[in-house]
Design a protein around this nucleic acid. Structure first.
Lengths: 160, 160
DNA sequence: TCTGAAAGGGTTGATGG
DNA sequence: CCATCAACCCTTTCAGA
């Protein structure tokens, strides 16, 4: 029903790399005319497979030249606490990512900041809003070797 | 010279959130007609401030339901080794991000994978291609609480 | 599901304020 | 640096296969 065929996968691949391709151009690259190509893209959007389109910008150009990862360990692990942490982090725009991880700590947070004063402020907010944050370790990024969100699309195994 | 004014910042903000906005619509939202708006966007692109446009997709829809972070520590830290690591990681499409960090380890790698077999394969490749990788720790993401690359644009301080 | 064609809207570039 | 306008291109929709 919502199986993705080879053309769908190529569309996803191309739009991940060039998010402003016209439907005409995209259609030519995947071997379709404009109409069905546009139709497929709309379908991928409404299925929630394409979740949005975003310009990628150079963070330094808008003053966000500090990239930090913070590992947070909670001393108490209950569902209300988890929920509070989720809600708080959602409302912090400098926090780009937050993941609940297995292993030796609980949350891995990625944040882009203007500098150390914003960093101190963020850590303060976190520790205040998340009272049981027993421990945190921060890692400042010295060099961004690679940063992308483009997922490799494996060749389809269509049902012949 | 390449100072960003208030309108530029609003353009960056809007295009980060809706990367396929038409120049006409974008112009209306920032109070410009189509041409100067398009002109500004082109300028932001050619200055390298907007670095690209990308569709964001649901990784699970294309089978990438495993998200892993790997911390890598090198036992030997020389420039040739750093260069080799950079080159190797650039060529691994499952590696979405790689950062050189300060602190108790060297590289933080973020990868999206189809499953454990791909994970094992990736780790094997890493340890083989990066001979001095003395140690690595992996963290499997149990829940993605937040994931975005949209940077908050602070209100400009225009030079009046 | 695709193609093709027609109508509506967006983009581009020249012109002028 | 901005608005306007015309020519061109893209998108959308609807037949028809």
């Amino acid at each position: 029903m919502s199986e993705l065929d080879t053309i769908d996968r190529r569309i996803l691949d191309l739009l991940q790399q060039e998010g402003r391709l016209t439907m005409t151009e995209l259609g030519e690259r995947v071997g379709l005319s404009t109409s069905p190509c546009s139709q497929r893209v709309k379908r991928l959007e409404s299925l929630g497979i394409i979740t949005g389109y975003h310009a990628h910008i150079n963070p330094a150009a808008v003053g966000k030249s500090l990239l930090v990862f913070v590992e947070i360990t909670l001393s108490e692990k209950s569902e209300p606490i988890f929920k509070k942490v989720r809600d708080e982090l959602q409302n912090m725009p400098e926090v780009l990512e937050c993941h609940l991880v297995s292993g030796s700590f609980d949350y891995l947070v990625k944040a882009r900041l203007t500098g150390m004063s914003e960093y101190r402020h963020m850590l303060g907010t976190m520790l205040k809003q998340m009272p049981v944050a027993a421990q945190s370790s921060s890692y400042v990024v010295m060099e961004e070797i690679k940063e992308s969100s483009v997922v490799r699309i494996d060749r389809s195994r269509p049902r012949t």
